[in-house]
Design a protein around this nucleic acid. Structure first.
Lengths: 212, 212
DNA sequence: ATGTAAATCACCCAATCGGGTGATAGGTTT
DNA sequence: AAACCTATCACCCGATTGGGTGATTTACAT
């Protein structure tokens, strides 16, 4: 069974050499090669590819917009992004938009072929350095799965929620039907348990640690 | 310059063949091959490797605990995990613990060598299917990204970051080398732009809208 | 029963914060 | 040139906060 590949690449030499490369494979077939993504949906319907090679920088519709459209309208089609440079935010945007892989253009033809195969088979090939950036973002984001251990009482959690919502002590006292001094006492206990010394620190910690 | 590689792998045949493979490379040297991670820190100090090949399943200290220790105590050392199966949670745990890459053991020797090189050079090699899992988790988690529209000046963004970190006006004034009144003015402008009226509201909004 | 934790309230006080008003200087836009 | 934005600084003032100390009641566990 042949893998049908569509190519979106504005550089003519590169586009044609990619096309040749793909067609020279026994298990692949280039179903279309286009210089831009301006008639993306039309081209996609025409070519009905399994895998799309998408340049990230193109005149008109950008590769990122294109991948967004493809992943919405042709969810089974897998998109392998190609770019010259490693631009952090573009990588991020492309992957969030639905790209399956991210290769640098300097990648050797053999690796490109391999990457197309992997993409077709559900993999997400990326150059090691791209993967490193993804990993880095990945590690930075999701705080900690663990970080249990902080056991606030029910009342304290409730008050912490109000703090995160930006309420003043007075306002919290009113919605909780207690005196302002009670609120202050609770807040003091919260600070002790969270090891912080101000509302904003408590709010930041609460959000980051998903206590609220 | 040679890359010093340490190997942690409980299977003796595999360990020895890896050792041979590494030593057969002109730019690599096996600095130690160990059957378990029980005297990890000692072994690490002895071998002082650049790259560690770490089996994920070992008797005693697990590969994941080991990578955690290494990334804490030897932060410059890069760790390439190896495993037989693709177990989602293990991949997740290993990468969060600080692993730089994740290869399946079925990977060919040539690819292993390449992966070690990439790891040494700051890359994060993974089998395409592993990368796909990472991407999937990555896409599932972090919800919305952009939500532009709020345009703070550079200085204001900087000060907002300090607010989120829990600094007082006075503390910000000191790290920014400006007077406390300047900080207050910036903060007022930030409040106006964010439509909030207190530090904690600003902090919550900044975090939720990923302004920081 | 005795101790411990949670929830409630009170008073004090200094530091911080929020907002008002106003000013100067450099840069951009119109 | 005028208008506008940004960054900087200053003074004032009332409200809020953070922390110290202490107390009572209820409930739960030893």
């Amino acid at each position: 069974m042949e893998i049908k590949v569509a190519i979106f690449e504005d550089s003519k030499p590169l586009r044609e050499s990619l096309q040749q490369l793909v067609d020279s494979q026994v298990n692949m077939q280039c179903a279309g090669a286009f210089a831009d993504a301006n008639h993306l949906v039309l081209h996609m319907k025409e070519a009905s590819p399994d895998v799309v090679l998408m340049d990230i920088n193109m005149p008109g519709t950008s590769g990122i917009e294109a991948v967004k459209i493809i992943s919405e309208q042709f969810p089974v089609v897998r998109v392998l992004m190609q770019t010259v440079f490693e631009e952090n935010d573009k990588i991020f945007a492309a992957l969030l938009a639905g790209a399956s892989g991210y290769m640098l253009k300097k990648t050797s033809p053999a690796k490109m072929i391999e990457a197309i195969n992997e993409t077709y088979n559900g993999g997400a090939p990326m150059t090691g350095s791209v993967a490193a950036k993804v990993l880095q973002m990945f590690r930075n984001q999701p705080a900690a799965a663990s970080s249990e251990s902080i056991d606030l009482s029910e009342r304290e959690k409730e008050i912490l929620e109000w703090l995160v919502k930006g309420k003043s002590y007075q306002a919290i006292a009113e919605v909780c039907f207690v005196s302002i001094d009670t609120v202050k006492t609770h807040v003091r206990h919260i600070y002790e348990k969270l090891h912080v010394h101000s509302k904003s620190q408590a709010v930041a910690k609460a959000i980051y640690q998903k206590l609220v």
